[in-house]
Design a protein around this nucleic acid. Structure first.
Lengths: 247, 247
DNA sequence: CCTGTTTATCGTCAGGAAGACGACTAAGAT
DNA sequence: ATCTTAGTCGTCTTCCTGACGATAAACAGG
C-alpha cells in the first residue's frame, strides 16, 4: 500500500473530556448542553477540535481550562490529573462527517464554584450513576442520554477511574492538596459505590510506604475527633493494590 | 467555539500495530522495513491509513491480516488478541503532514512460518529487548531505532502487555489453543524476563477457578513427564492477580 | 535393563496481608 | 454532663504467597 500524503482520506480530529470529581459522596461527571445541531439542546461531554499545531494532551488541557478553569498539574489555582483514555472513530458516530475523537480522562478535586471560568455555555456536574442508568426518565433539565457515543466514552472513563485507583495513588487527585485519611476513604467509597471499613482502610494507606506523607497539621472539618492531614506521597503505584470489595 | 465542519483542520488518521509473540523464550515484536521515504530502509511498526468507511479496530485487523495473515479472534487459521493501545498525534511526528496514529496491540501465538500471508514487504520478528535497548550498535540488517515515534509506541505496548497479564488471562493469547501449564509459565517468564517457581505457578493457575479448563489430553512435546493440556477458561480477570516478582 | 536428566505435580511450612470487629480518643452538639 | 461523630490503635482468624522437599513419568544413553 503506497503511502501517498496527497490522497489521504479526510478526517477531523477532536478531543472529548471525561471530567470526574467527587461531590457529596457521589462520583460526578461534567456535562455541557449543546448549543448547535446535531443533538442541539442535548447534553454531551465537553470537547472540541484539535488545533493544527497542538498536541493531543495540549488540546485536552486547553479545552479543560476553557470549560472549567481547571489547570492540569500546575501550581497555583486548582490542579487536576489528565490522561489519555481511548480513541473513538466509528464511521457515522458524528452524522456530519468522519470524526475521530481522542477521549481524555480528568480527575479533579471538588470545586468551590460549580463550574467556574468557563464561557457562557451551560455546564453541570451530574452523578455518573444517573448518567449511566439504563433508560430511566430523568427530566430534560438534567442530563440523560448523552449526545453522539458519549455514553460509552463516559462509561469507559468511569471504569478506568474505578480500576486505576486500585493500584495507583490516583485517588488523591480527587482530594484537595491536604486531606485526611477519612476524606480519601470517602473518595474510594464514592468512586466504587461501596462502604469500606475505616480501620482497615486506615491501616492500609498509612502502612504503605510513600503513599501518604503527614503534613503535621490536623483538621476537624469533617466533625468528630481531629484528623491528621496528609499530602500525596511520591509513590505512584500501590503494591499490593487496594482491593475493591466483591459485590 | 463554533463547531464548523467545513473548516476543520486537515488530519490524516492511521493505525500502527505492536504485534507481540513469544519465540524461543523471548518476547518478540513484528517490524517491517520501510520501502519509501521518509525513513526509507529503516524499520518501523506495521500500519497504514484508516479507510473512509472502516472503524479503527477494523483497520487494525485488516492491516494485521495484510502483514501477517493472522486473523483476529476467528475460528480456523491462527487467531490473535487485538486491543486499542493509545493514540499518538504530536505535530511533527510525521515530517510530511499532520498524522494522528491510533496504535493497537496484538498478542499472537508463535507462528510456524515466520511471517506468512503478507505481501512482498520485509517483515521480521525481533526480540523487544534488542529493539528497546538504549543506543547499541545493532547492525543495519536487524532493526535498531524504529522510524517516527515507533520506539515509544513499542515501549508503551510492551508495558501494557507486561502489566495486563498480571491481572487477566491474556497470557493464553500467546499460546496455541491447547497448552500446558509449563508452556503458559514460559510465556510469563519471557514477557516479564524473570524466572518463576514452577510449583507455585502451577498451584496459582490451576487453583484459580475458570482460568484453565483441562481438555483431558496430555502432551510430551516439551520433554519430560507428560503434562495435562488446557484451554483458556472463561475467566478474563485474575483476582488476586499474578504477582510480578520484584527485580 | 538401569541410570541420569528433564519436566510435571503434590505437599509442607513460615510470613504477610486482609477482613471482621473491639476498644479508646477527642472534638462539637444538645 | 452526655451523646454523637470521626479518627486511631489492636487483636484474631483466614487466605495467599514464596521457599523448597519429594515423587512421578517420560526419554537418552550406556
Amino acid at each position: 500500500m503506497p503511502y501517498d500524503p496527497s490522497a489521504y482520506p479526510p478526517f477531523a480530529v477532536t478531543v472529548d473530556l471525561v471530567v470526574l470529581t467527587v461531590r457529596k459522596h457521589a462520583l460526578c461527571a461534567l456535562a455541557v448542553r449543546r448549543g448547535e445541531p446535531p443533538f442541539q439542546g442535548q447534553w454531551a461531554l465537553p470537547g472540541g477540535f484539535v488545533l493544527p499545531d497542538e498536541d493531543l494532551g495540549g488540546a485536552a488541557a486547553r479545552e479543560l481550562a476553557e470549560e472549567t478553569g481547571l489547570q492540569v498539574e500546575e501550581p497555583g489555582g486548582h490542579s487536576a490529573h489528565l490522561e489519555q483514555l481511548a480513541t473513538y472513530g466509528d464511521p457515522g458516530r458524528d452524522p456530519r462527517m468522519r470524526v475521530v475523537s481522542v477521549a481524555h480522562l480528568v480527575l479533579a478535586p471538588d470545586l468551590p464554584a460549580p463550574v467556574s471560568g468557563g464561557d457562557a455555555k451551560t455546564a453541570r456536574w451530574t452523578p455518573v450513576e444517573r448518567l449511566l442508568a439504563p433508560e430511566e426518565d430523568r427530566g430534560e433539565a438534567s442530563p440523560g442520554r448523552l449526545a453522539f457515543d458519549h455514553d460509552r466514552i463516559l462509561a469507559d472513563g468511569v471504569e478506568r477511574a474505578r480500576s486505576k485507583i486500585e493500584y495507583s495513588s490516583l485517588a488523591a487527585a480527587f482530594c484537595p492538596p491536604e486531606f485526611t485519611v477519612g476524606e480519601l476513604r470517602r473518595v474510594y467509597e464514592a468512586v466504587w459505590g461501596v462502604a469500606l471499613d475505616p480501620r482497615n482502610f486506615h491501616r492500609k494507606v498509612t502502612g504503605t510506604p510513600g503513599f501518604l506523607v503527614p503534613t503535621g497539621g490536623t483538621t476537624t472539618r469533617q466533625g468528630g475527633r481531629p484528623a491528621q492531614l496528609f499530602r500525596a506521597g511520591g509513590a505512584t503505584v500501590l503494591n499490593p493494590p487496594m482491593l475493591r470489595p466483591e459485590v
